[in-house]
Structures are given as structure tokens and as C-alpha cells.
């Protein structure tokens, strides 16, 4: 199987979220960056497991500046065979998807994987966009993927349950929790990652169809009102009379 995994870079989950330049830019000072957990833990690892089961290759692709090479090397250390970096500031899902689709177009990948969303902008857009650009089926929120001979069977998370789906031919999926278990790169992986191929593509600039123009951090709640644990009638009363939610 020939698999392409799209990886993105996000702030670490505990990062302080703040904005500068009058709320127009994310303040990266003191922020550590990681590979987006959905891409690393689920998409990439399941891709590697499939390669181990069925043979083939796993290529990772990332749209971002050279400073993001750290996550690419990590993906190679976990086990990807080679990597592609498209040199652009990843601001627009549409631009990212267009670049990835253009790269993948003539390469006959059997499967293209993305995460279900990035944990920073939470857009959940790139996977479907790649699929539409390549005219392929797209199965979102995949929490299980097995092959019976060459027939893939996917489990997709839906509201309050799951759907099981068979797909014919090449396809795109977005990975959600459950698809695989996180893998920690070992020393050999880290060493060999240094010499694995990393191709850099310089794209032609494109205009964006939608832009973030402002950010703000929501106001924090005013202080909590504590209720006596022996007086649950009081809790019911405040929820009914003050909060009006029951």
C-alpha cells in the first residue's frame, strides 16, 4: 500500500493562548509546538501498521516553514519512509489542501490520511478538501480501519454511535481517537530519521477565500458560588431560579 499522511504542527495542549498586535496574531512566545495529536497518534501510526501488515510506503507531507522540520523529523523517526514539505505559512485550509492535492495527484496513493482536526484552529476542513480536489471518497472521523484481503472496512464515529463503511478504490480519511495507539520513537528511529529523504517544494502563492481577522480570549467566569454539600435543595433552587437551566 502506498499511503500519504498529512501532518500539521500545533501548540502543545497546555500552551498559554494569547494574542498580540491588537488581537490579530497568535502570540507564540514561550509556546512549545508539537505534531497535531490526531495526525501523530492515530493517522501516522495506523499508516505504519498497515505498511507493516501489507508492505508499501508511508510518506508524510507538511505545509509549513523550515522551522517546522522538527515535526517532520519526528514523523520519520516514528517510522515514515520519506517526507515532503511545502514551504508556505499554513494559514488557509484551502491553500494547504490545494498544495497537498497537487502533490498527490499523479502519485497513485491508495490512501491519504489526515487528522480529524488540528487542535489549534479545529477546522476539520483539509481532509474533505483534498478529497474533493482529487475526486475521491472521504470518510471522516475514522476510529477503526481494517482490511479484509484488499477490502477496507472503516468505522466512522457519528453522533451517539458508529457507522461501518466499505470503500472501493483510493480514498481519503480523517483519523479520530481509537484508530491506533501512540508510538514513541526509539533511538534507531531517531538516528535513521536524519538521513531519510525530505523533499521541499516551493509553491506558487494563492489567495485565501477566508481569513482570520481577529482573535480574543473569552472572559473568565466570575467567582464560583459554593453550595453546602448537605443542602442539595439549594443547588436545585439556584439552577432553577438563578441560572434558569432546569
Amino acid at each position: 500500500m502506498k499511503i500519504l499522511v498529512a501532518i500539521s504542527q500545533t501548540p502543545e495542549t497546555t500552551a498559554r493562548i494569547a494574542f498580540k498586535n491588537e488581537g490579530t496574531t497568535f502570540d507564540t512566545s514561550g509556546v512549545n509546538f508539537i505534531m497535531n495529536p490526531y495526525d501523530e497518534w492515530y493517522a501516522l501510526v495506523r499508516a505504519l501498521e498497515l505498511k507493516e501488515e501489507k508492505g508499501g510506503t508511508v510518506t508524510v507531507i507538511h505545509c509549513g516553514p523550515a522551522s517546522n522540520d522538527v515535526i517532520i523529523r519526528k514523523a520519520l523517526a516514528i517510522g515514515a519512509d520519506d517526507a515532503v514539505r511545502i514551504d508556505l505559512e499554513p494559514r488557509s485550509a484551502h491553500v494547504i489542501a490545494t498544495q497537498i492535492a497537487a502533490y498527490a495527484k499523479d502519485k497513485t496513493f491508495d490512501l491519504i490520511m489526515t487528522g480529524k482536526e488540528t487542535i489549534d484552529y479545529n477546522e476539520s476542513l483539509v481532509g474533505g478538501m483534498i478529497a474533493e480536489l482529487l475526486e475521491l471518497p472521504f470518510i471522516s472521523h475514522v476510529s477503526k480501519l481494517v482490511y479484509n484481503n484488499d477490502q477496507p472496512l472503516l468505522t466512522r464515529d457519528i453522533e451517539g454511535g458508529v457507522e461501518e463503511i466499505e470503500v472501493t478504490g483510493p480514498y481519503v480519511l480523517s483519523a479520530s481517537k481509537g484508530l491506533a495507539e501512540q508510538r514513541i520513537p526509539n533511538m534507531r528511529g531517531i538516528m535513521s530519521a536524519k538521513t531519510k529523504p525530505l523533499q521541499v517544494i516551493i509553491p506558487t502563492p494563492e489567495t485565501s477565500l477566508a481569513d482570520y481577522i481577529h482573535f480574543q480570549v473569552p472572559e473568565t467566569k466570575s467567582t464560583v458560588k459554593m453550595i453546602d454539600p448537605n443542602d442539595m435543595d439549594e443547588l436545585v433552587r439556584v439552577l432553577h431560579e438563578e441560572a434558569k437551566v432546569i
Binding site: P137, L153, I158, G160, E164, I165, V167, T168
Partner: peptide, 10 residues
């Protein structure tokens, strides 16, 4: 090109 073969919902 896809076939939903099962839906499980609580």
C-alpha cells in the same frame, strides 16, 4: 464509491 454496511447507534 462507498457502502455503509452497518449503523450502530445508542
Amino acid at each position: 464509491k462507498t457502502k455503509v454496511i452497518n449503523v450502530k447507534r445508542s
